[in-house]
Design a binder for these strands. Structure first.
Lengths: 327, 327
DNA sequence: GTCTATACGGGGATAGAC
DNA sequence: GTCTATCCCCGTATAGAC
């Protein structure tokens, strides 16, 4: 059966070449610029060939979503070991926002584009058959070298959750659903806080987890889409939000079990506000974290100019690219 | 000069017919389904004619954005009169989320699609020359009847802000920038709360306003895009979030000036959680508010089936409509 | 001045030839 | 398995009809 195996491997390889090319286009030019023809040209195949590996452009997008979500989850792995649940949650929140700012195109694709895409990212491996073996979203030309790192980290993330002693009481996260895994990380931390009396006993952990996530998503989404708000630095916003939900870190210990929410003396650095520019956004990203690949800047650029291309200059509403002779 | 006047009026009328048709398509089929050819067919003109009134499809989109944002602002008008600033903010928050759920396509277009669109909605009349005279987004066939209601309510909204006695100390909202107007509404309420000692004196009102807005936007955006989260009812989420930011309403008055944040016994109705369905989303919308036009359902349907079409079945990635013979 | 007919380039997807 | 040719959709530029 060696011949069949080889054929299977070759098919696999082409499938991943397709995804690599697609990923590169999305990261550099935005999802709107992703076209079957462009992918085909990149891998030097006919457009029709793509349909032997993916049923549609949507399916390619969903495969990219699953990869991107795994990449996001991998970001959380080193943070689940933080002992203090509030600090853990805050670190996770900062990492989440940092990911969104560092990988705007991927974040948009996963969480802001289409419900079916978001579902593919969250709905477990069932939705996307290829979610497991996909390459990382690091978007470098050497994509083949890092091929299976993402699935590994995803698996270890789930393992880390149940391995963490503090998270024992959390229900076991189903390994096949990364969305549930991430949710369980939050739930565990929230319930630890409640058990320690640092959140009200009446709190519904699920509601709080979803609301907290929505808050972080709102910060990222607004930043990616709205040119004028927020004017405040991103980390300031994240800090205020996390403190609002979890209380400021140095809560006076003697009244901790009632969560009396001490005066929120957080982030009154109003002087930092200013009109946003692309450079500001990039600066905010590096304040929070400095991840691997700053998404979508053209191949080579002076470092300070990177941020100018970090956000899509134009959504490229199909068919308005080459023909601009007059305008 | 009567003839010139008449010509100008005719041009205006055609312009609004274009916008009406475009609005109808967006509301019913989603922004992705909006095409120049489809608009032209709807108004029974040649596609080229549209370009005599709008420079591009993007410009039509931006005009629709300005309208939609004005419609959203109009929703706030009756609420700025609420005396208690916390209650006012909560009412505004609920109205905001209710708008997003009731008009998903409009909300997506304004806040989730493209930075230039969002900028057109927020950036004041400067960005979009036609923002003033646009029709309401009520999406009924009788769009001509309600033509100038939106601009009126927008103007009165700005007026109401400065007219409200409690908001006197807020800097005067520049009338030409609806984004700034909305922001000033929030700022005024937050500063009232701080002046009353119900928020910490160190609070940066601008940061809080932006963070609060981001929270609400996150709730709406997640609901519109993510098929599995949030599982909690929307109004529960909004309640928890508003309480987290503003404290629960019945804060014990004797310690009010320190904002000691009494136990948050809010919304522990965990029993209400369930997997989301389109019907649930619609139910959540009506829980919060019952606005005029439930967006994007096909012309006539039994009422309970409306919600099934309330969210776009498919983003209609251009050119995948007619040709589906196999799939 | 208004408007249409026509054309170009690009897009998703498919049928059928090799 | 792969490609060529094709279909229909799209945004939009332009020439020329009225």
């Amino acid at each position: 059966m060696g011949i069949i195996e080889r054929k299977k491997r070759q098919k696999q390889a082409l499938r991943e070449r397709i995804l690599d090319a697609a990923r590169r286009i999305v990261v550099h030019e935005g999802f709107a610029a992703l076209s079957m023809r462009k992918i085909a040209e990149a891998i030097e195949y006919s457009p029709a060939t793509l349909y032997l590996h993916f049923a549609s452009r949507d399916e390619i997008a969903r495969a990219l979503c699953a990869e991107g979500y795994a990449q996001l989850l991998a970001t959380f792995v080193p943070l689940v070991g933080i002992a203090d649940p509030a600090e853990r949650l805050k670190a996770l929140g900062r990492a989440y926002v940092a990911f969104g700012v560092a990988h705007p195109q991927t974040y948009r694709l996963i969480f802001m584009e289409d419900p079916s895409y978001t579902g593919a990212a969250l709905g477990g491996a069932a939705g996307v058959s290829d979610a497991g073996q996909a390459g990382a979203l690091t978007d470098q030309d050497a994509a083949s070298a890092a091929t299976d790192s993402v699935v590994d980290t995803t698996a270890s993330a789930t393992a880390a959750i149940s391995a963490d002693p503090a998270a024992n009481f959390a229900t076991v996260a189903p390994a096949e659903d990364p969305g549930a895994a991430a949710m369980h990380i939050m739930l565990a931390a929230l319930e630890e806080l409640r058990a320690a009396g640092r959140l009200p006993a009446s709190m519904d952990a699920t509601v709080w987890a979803e609301a907290l996530w929505a808050t972080l998503h709102g910060i990222v989404a607004l930043n990616l889409t709205c040119p004028v708000f927020p004017t405040a630095p991103l980390d300031t916003l994240v800090g205020v939000a996390l403190d609002a939900w979890l209380g400021v870190p140095e809560a006076t210990p003697q009244q901790a079990n009632r969560r009396t929410a001490p005066p929120r003396n957080v982030a009154s650095a109003a002087g930092a506000r200013k009109k946003k520019s692309a450079a500001d956004r990039a600066a905010q990203a590096s304040q929070l974290e400095s991840p691997d690949e700053p998404e979508n800047h053209p191949p080579t650029r002076p470092p300070h100019a990177r941020s100018a291309e970090a956000l899509p200059k134009k959504p490229l509403s199909a068919g308005a690219k080459r023909r601009s002779t007059t305008t």
